[in-house]
């Protein structure tokens, strides 16, 4: 680990990868308009960039069926503001342009898919893995790099069908020691984000009043990793550890687990669909006899 830490800048230089939820199904139901929300976020990005000249911000849009990079501050080295006459710095007009293109593309992809039954969730797993790929690239290139962290700004409900992919991303973030902060602005609570922040040591918070979003963002999520060592941040009240089953992608409290590969199922199967192990007796009332048999097995 020594070689990695020596490659970091000395203090609070940070790389923030922001995952922005642009799911139209969610934004059509909210009290706050997407444009209002975006103005809070842009101000927040400006603030983060202003804190340190070496700070870097990457924004990834999380759509309904796709995700894409829409802004990278390292590609527009502070400057190159072509005065576009709109009274807005070019960095953000380019972000907005990309965002427009992205949502148009996302809409098209969404039409192609005729998956009517799907929950109106956004593709969190995709954007998480994109963020991790980006961070991995930063780790491998150059001799000095900022401290990375991921911030999920999510409003859409979890998509249980993404469970495995999301969990895998979370575990690789944990391995890379990249904290995933999450700011959940939706009405339900998100088990994915709670678990992501809990496992990777990030902060999870769901703001109550969305018109003060900027204050929440700067107070909690603008805190760099160095400062986190000595300030009060929201602590997890309770983490929703529920998993999704591998067979029907339902969120479950209790289920069956393959003793070989730990795959989760909501009902009993003869054979594990992941690793192919054959399971024994099934019914719950025979559970005791199964236990007896197993206990006997080593003796015989």
């Amino acid at each position: 680990m020594a070689s990695v830490t020596s490659k970091l800048y000395s203090d609070d230089v940070s790389l923030l990868v922001l995952l922005l939820d642009t799911n139209p199904f969610y934004w059509s139901t909210t009290s706050i308009k997407f444009s209002q929300f975006l103005s809070h976020v842009l101000a927040f990005l400006n603030a983060v960039l202003g804190l340190n000249q070496l700070n870097q911000v990457v924004v990834i849009a999380t759509g309904y069926s796709s995700c894409d990079y829409i802004y990278d501050s390292s590609l527009t080295p502070n400057g190159h503001f072509e005065s576009s006459g709109t009274g807005m710095p070019a960095i953000f007009s380019s972000l907005l342009k990309k965002l427009d293109e992205f949502s148009a593309k996302d809409e098209e992809l969404c039409k192609e898919e005729d998956n009517e039954k799907r929950v109106a969730s956004s593709l969190l797993s995709g954007s998480l893995s994109m963020a991790l790929c980006y961070i991995q690239r930063v780790f491998r290139s150059g001799h000095l790099h900022p401290q990375p962290r991921i911030l999920c700004l999510q409003g859409s409900p979890d998509g249980p069908e993404q469970y495995v992919a999301v969990m895998n991303s979370i575990f690789s973030a944990q391995r890379l020691m990249v904290p995933i902060d999450s700011c959940y602005i939706g009405t339900q609570n998100s088990a994915f984000l709670q678990q992501a922040s809990y496992i990777t040591g990030g902060v999870h918070h769901s703001p109550k009043q969305l018109d003060g979003l900027f204050q929440y963002l700067t107070t909690i999520f603008a805190t760099d990793l160095y400062t986190r060592g000595f300030v009060q941040l929201p602590k997890p009240v309770g983490v929703d550890f529920r998993a999704s089953c591998f067979c029907h992608k339902k969120t479950i409290d209790m289920g069956y687990i393959c003793s070989v590969c730990l795959s989760i199922f909501c009902e009993h199967h003869k054979k594990c669909s992941t690793c192919g192990s054959v399971f024994g007796q099934s019914k719950l009332d025979e559970a005791s006899s199964v236990a007896n048999k197993k206990r006997k097995a080593p003796d015989s």
Partner: peptide
Amino acid sequence: LQKHVISGGVL
């Protein structure tokens, strides 16, 4: 600073 945060960096 408020101006900076809202309108971004200017030259």
